[in-house]
Amino acid sequence: MTIPLTWYLILSGSLFTIGAVGVLVRRNALVILMSIELMLNAVNLAFVTFSRQHESMDGQIFVFFIMTVAAAEAAVGLAIVVALFKNKSTINVDDINIMKW
């Protein structure tokens, strides 16, 4: 049995939504970071599916770039979280609120 391409797209859409909800609902900076990674991987899945559908390589090349950039982004993000934790001893985003109007 072959799985139709739409199923992959539905999966990709669901993963993206779960990630987006995770970013908005969770309060731990690390979990938010993980949710963002989930969203990026949902995008990757969509790109690979479309690449298969159109039988073109562009989408897969795009995925390589996204993975590379996601790695760089995670490195910078974790560094920022570490720097913050050194000063404040918390990574709960609700407590990070010294600037407000």
């Binding site: 987006a20 970071l33 969203m39 920022i80 720097a83 913050l84």
Partner: peptide, 20 residues
């Protein structure tokens, strides 16, 4: 620190929408 974290989290979040 706070500025960087806010910028990073929201920036990466927006990038995901752009990519989708």
């Amino acid at each position: 620190n706070e500025s960087a974290l806010k910028y990073f989290l929201l920036g990466a979040f927006a990038t995901c929408f752009l990519l989708y």
